[in-house]
Design a protein around this nucleic acid. Structure first.
Lengths: 370, 370
DNA sequence: TTTAATCATGAATCTTGGT
DNA sequence: CACCAAGATTCATGATTAA
C-alpha cells in the first residue's frame, strides 16, 4: 500500500514512504488537512553553548549577555514556530500532535504550541527505568523526557482510546507518567561499524502507547523528524499508515530496511477495547416495545425511590415524569443521572439493573447485524 | 531571629517575616543580591470553564480564585517576566530558583526563565502517588507537576548537596522524578469552617527535598507566592532563614500561626520525606508494549484453552474478551483465575508461563530500583 | 475496642449528537 | 451557532460511621 491517495485534494498523499528533504518544505508540499496524527522528535538544541558565539567567532565572555542569548534562543524559536505552522497546515481539524523534548527545548516548544493555537491536552512524562546517571554528581539524574500532547484546536474532537489504555494498564486509567526502559539491546539499531545508528533512537514501547492511545487503524501518522523510523515501524505493526520526513540519507536507509522487516499484526489483534460511547444507542422505549418491561411495571433505585413505566418509554414518579435519566436526576436532586444503571426491575425476587436488558438487545444486534 | 541584617546594603533584610503586598513591588524593596534561594509557586492560569462533577455527582471544588485569572497568554507572560526580573535582582550571583507549575503555565515560565538569563539545571517531575483521576475518561490522569530548577547564570556556583540527597534516596543518586503524595490528612490546613485554607497547599515533603538539596543551614530562602507558608515552615524546621510575600490577609494569618508552631529540626520532617518504594505492579499490557509478546500471538492454558493477544493487552478467546485473568476465569468457569500462571506462550517448542516474562521485568527493576 | 464499610476530596483547561 | 437531552465517568487516602 504505497502512494495511495486518501484526500480529495489535487495532491496525493505519499503513504508509507520516507520523504527526502527539509521537514518544513516537505510538509508544505503535502495536501492540507490530510494527516490524523503528527509525532515529532525535533532537535533538542543541546548545542546551544556552541551558538553562544558571535558571528566573528569571538567567544562570549559575559554569560549575561542578553543579546547573544536572545539571538540563540530566537533562532530556535523561529525554527520551532515554522515547523509547527507547517505541521498545523497538514493536520486534519480533529487531528493531534505529540512532541517530545527535554528541558533544553521543551519549554520553548510548549509555549510555541500554545501561541500557534494548539490546545494542550496533557504533558506526559516518559520516566526512564534505566537512565544514564549523572557522573559528576552536580545535578539530579536526568531520568525523564517530556512529551506534549495537543489537539489542533480547543474545539477539536481528538482521538483518545481510553478503554484500550486502561486495559494496557491493568484496569486503572492511564496516568501522565509512563515508566518505560530506554531503547537498547537488540532493538537498538547499529551501523556497519557496530556503533549506534542514531544518537537518540526512541523505544518502540513509547510509540506503541502513543499510537494505540491516539490513533485508530487506518489513520495516517506523520513524523517530520523521522530518524531511524521508530514511528513508521510501530505504525506499520499497528496497521496505521505513515509518512516520514528525513534529511539524512544514512538514517533513511536504516529506517527503510528496518520497516521492510516489520510484519503488521493481523487485524483482529488490532481491535481494542471499545468505549461504551461507541456502542449503538438503544432508546429505553425499545425495552417496552419489545415487552421486556410492561407499562405499569414499577422500577426501583438503590436508594429506594420508585417510578412507574409508561407505554411511551417515559417514567412517572412522585411529582415528576420524564425520561429514565430526568426522573432519576430529579429524585436524587443530582445534576444528572444515568438511568440505565440507576433503575432496577424485579426478576425472580431480585433487583436487576435495566442496563442488562439493553445489553441483551445489543448482543442480539451483534449476532444479527441487520 | 527577626529582621536581622545579612547584607552590606543600606536596606535591611526582613528575615523570617511575611511581607504584605504585591510580590514584584515587595521584591524590589529588598536589597539587591541578598537571597540564596527562591522557591516560587506562581498562579497556574488554569482557564477552567464550567463545573466538573465526579461520577457520583459530587462537585469538584475547582481553583477559581481571582488570583488565578489572567486575560490572555500575553498578560500571563508579562506578569511572569516581571516577577522573574524582580526575583533575579534580589538573588545572589550564586543563587538559584525553583518554580513549580503544570502544563497550563510551565512552558511559558520555562521559556521566560531562559529568556531572562537563568540557566536551567534540571526539570524535576513531582509524580503524585495519589492524584485526582480524570473523571470523564477524556485524557490521561494528570498525575504530575513540573518544577524547574535554575541558577542565576550559567557560570553560577549553585548549591547542590549531592550526598544528602543520595542518602535521602537510600544510597542511590537522586533522580529528576520524585514520587510524593499530595498534601492531605493532618498536614492539610483548614479554615474556621473546616474547609481547606488554601486550594493548592504543597506538601512539606516536596519543600524538604528542595531545601535539603539546594540550600545550606543559615541560607536565606525567599517565597514570593507564600500562600499558607509551606516554604517558611520547612525552612524553619531545617534551620534556614526565610522571607515570604503574600497579598491575601487570610493566607498570611494561617501561615503565621502555622510557622509559629514549628520546632526546628523536628525529627518528623525526615520521616515525612521518605518515599515508600512503589510495589512493582506489572500490567500485562507492558509485555505487549515491550515486544515480549506480539499482538495476534496465541496463548494456551494447561487445560488446552487458547486465546489471542491484542494490542491493548487484552485477550480474546471463544466468546469472551478481557484481561488475562477475566478470560482465564471465564474459560474455566471459575470465579477467578491468576492469568500470570494460567497462560503460556510458546518458546523453542515449549510452553512457558507468561509469568516468566513478568519476572524478567521485575528483575530489571530490582537491578535498577528507580 | 477492633475492624470493616462508607464517605469525602484533591491545581481539572474532563461529552456528544441532534435540532 | 445555540440549545437540549442522552448518558458516560474515578483512584488513593484519610476521616467518619457502622457493626
Amino acid at each position: 500500500m504505497n502512494a495511495m491517495t486518501k484526500t480529495k485534494g489535487v495532491k496525493t498523499l505519499p503513504l508509507n514512504t520516507i520523504l527526502d528533504g527539509d521537514c518544513i518544505e516537505m510538509m508544505n508540499s503535502l495536501p492540507e488537512e490530510s494527516v490524523d496524527l503528527i509525532f515529532a522528535d525535533p532537535p533538542y538544541n543541546l548545542q546551544l553553548k556552541g551558538e553562544l558565539h558571535r558571528p566573528d567567532n569571538s567567544r562570549v565572555d559575559a554569560v549575561d549577555d542578553h543579546w547573544d542569548q536572545f539571538a540563540s534562543f530566537a533562532a530556535y524559536d523561529q525554527f520551532t514556530r515554522e515547523w509547527l505552522a507547517a505541521a498545523r497546515r497538514v493536520l486534519k481539524p480533529n487531528g493531534a500532535i505529540w512532541v517530545i523534548g527535554s528541558y533544553h527545548n521543551i519549554f520553548r516548544v510548549g509555549a510555541a504550541l500554545q501561541d500557534a493555537g494548539y490546545w494542550i491536552l496533557n504533558d506526559v512524562v516518559w520516566r526512564k527505568s534505566n537512565p544514564m546517571p549523572n557522573f559528576r554528581g552536580k545535578r539530579f539524574t536526568n531520568a525523564h523526557e517530556t512529551m506534549i500532547w495537543a489537539s489542533k484546536s480547543e474545539a477539536a474532537k481528538y482521538t483518545f482510546n481510553y478503554e484500550a489504555l486502561k486495559a494496557l494498564n491493568e484496569g486503572i486509567q492511564m496516568r501522565s507518567d509512563w515508566v518505560l526502559p530506554i531503547c537498547n539491546g537488540g532493538e537498538r539499531l547499529k551501523d556497519a561499524n557496530g556503533d549506534k545508528a542514531h544518537p537518540t533512537q526512541k523505544p518502540m514501547s513509547l510509540l506503541h502507547r502513543v499510537l494505540v492511545g491516539s490513533t485508530n487503524p487506518g489513520d495516517v501518522v506523520l513524523d517530520p523528524f523521522f530518524g531511524t523510523g521508530t514511528t513508521g515501524a510501530v505504525a506499520k505493526m499497528l496497521g496505521r499508515d505513515w509518512i516520514g520526513i528525513e534529511r539524512e540519507a544514512a538514517y533513511r536507509e536504516v529506517a527503510t530496511r528496518r520497516i521492510a522487516d516489520i510484519r503488521a499484526f493481523d487485524r483482529s489483534a488490532l481491535e481494542v477495547t471499545r468505549a461504551k460511547r461507541a456502542e449503538p444507542r438503544i432508546p429505553f422505549g425499545q425495552l417496552v416495545e419489545r415487552g421486556m418491561l410492561r407499562p405499569g411495571e414499577m422500577l426501583v433505585s438503590p436508594s429506594g425511590k420508585v417510578a412507574k413505566v409508561r407505554a411511551d418509554g417515559t417514567l412517572v414518579g412522585d411529582d415528576v415524569k420524564g425520561s429514565i435519566h430526568q426522573v432519576g436526576a430529579h429524585l436524587e436532586g443530582a445534576p444528572s443521572c444515568n438511568g440505565w444503571t440507576y433503575w432496577h426491575f424485579r426478576k425472580d425476587g431480585k433487583h436487576v439493573p435495566i442496563d442488562v436488558l439493553r445489553q441483551q438487545i445489543r448482543a442480539e444486534m451483534a449476532a444479527r447485524p441487520h
